[in-house]
Amino acid sequence: MSVGESLVVGLFLVVLVFSVLAILYGMIMLLAAVLRPKASKKAVENNKDSAVGATSMDMDLVQTSFGEVKLKDVDERTAAMIMAIISDESQIPLSELRFKSIKAVE
């Protein structure tokens, strides 16, 4: 196979992979539109409302990859360590844990 032909094959490969994954993207969007329950949308809105309320209660609001955590008298570094330890000890991935708030106890 000449270099020119291999260039065409290489480009074709990349374009095809992109195309297939682009179709999958469309499919997931479609599935989300059809399957995503309206109830969960409402729940998200409710969470946002409660989060706004929390900030007015003199608490820090930390946005993490897995949701928002209210911190009271706890710095972000300590909170991250606590979450990691709980995940490790409980053998539950962080993605499946939901932390609502972390506060220091005297």
Partner: peptide, 17 residues
């Protein structure tokens, strides 16, 4: 995220060439 997964297959084409 799928597009980033697709972009990261670029090396397959490059190494093939």
């Amino acid at each position: 995220s799928l597009f980033m997964g697709a972009g990261a297959q670029f090396g397959i084409g490059a190494a093939f060439i």
